[in-house]
């Protein structure tokens, strides 16, 4: 993607956004929960049981199945999530947070960032929320297509 020249203040704002997020995550020790694993834990905490499957998580994160499966394996090894074979279809595994997974989410690094946003005066916070929403919806490079989209064909379009 060719980027148009940008003002140094907007570059500075982008740097602050990056620093804010990067600073929230602890040092990348191999034992630390990685950003993708945090995304999966958040998904598991929120999605209804029927949707807590690899074939739903991967497209949600716009990833192929392989990295998500690896992350799920790691979460399983750390006792943060478990996989249970579906009673009616043995090909389906339902993934569930363990009590340790629920506990880990209380320390989710994103909460620190959310708390800083929440601390803003109301009007400033509303303005920020509208701005970040517009930024997120602005022109971006097209995400790569997911290669393992599954699920019911009926409501997929």
């Amino acid at each position: 993607m060719t980027l148009a020249p940008v003002d140094k203040t907007t570059v500075a704002a982008a740097i602050l956004m990056e620093r804010l997020i990067r600073g929230a995550y602890p040092a990348r020790h191999s034992s630390a929960i990685q950003p993708l694993q945090w995304s999966i834990l958040r998904y598991l905490a929120r999605a209804p049981e029927d949707q807590r499957q690899l074939r739903r998580i991967a497209p949600f994160l716009n990833l192929t199945a392989a990295p998500v499966a690896r992350a799920l394996k790691t979460l399983g090894q750390r006792g943060l999530a478990t996989q249970r074979i579906n009673d009616t279809d043995s090909r389906i595994r339902t993934i569930t947070l363990t009590p340790s997974g629920v506990e880990a989410l209380r320390e989710d690094p994103i909460i620190c960032v959310a708390a800083r946003i929440e601390a803003l005066p109301l009007t400033e916070r509303d303005r920020f929320i509208k701005s970040i929403r517009s930024i997120a919806l602005g022109p971006m490079p097209e995400p790569e297509r997911v290669d393992d989209a599954g699920g019911d064909p009926d409501t997929s379009r």
Binding site: L61, N62, I132, E142
Partner: peptide
């Protein structure tokens, strides 16, 4: 179901913001 502009994780966040 996702779209060319945003992934579903982003879409969900935007839905929450809205």
């Amino acid at each position: 179901g996702g779209n060319p502009m945003t992934d579903l994780e982003t879409t969900q966040a935007i839905a929450d913001l809205s």
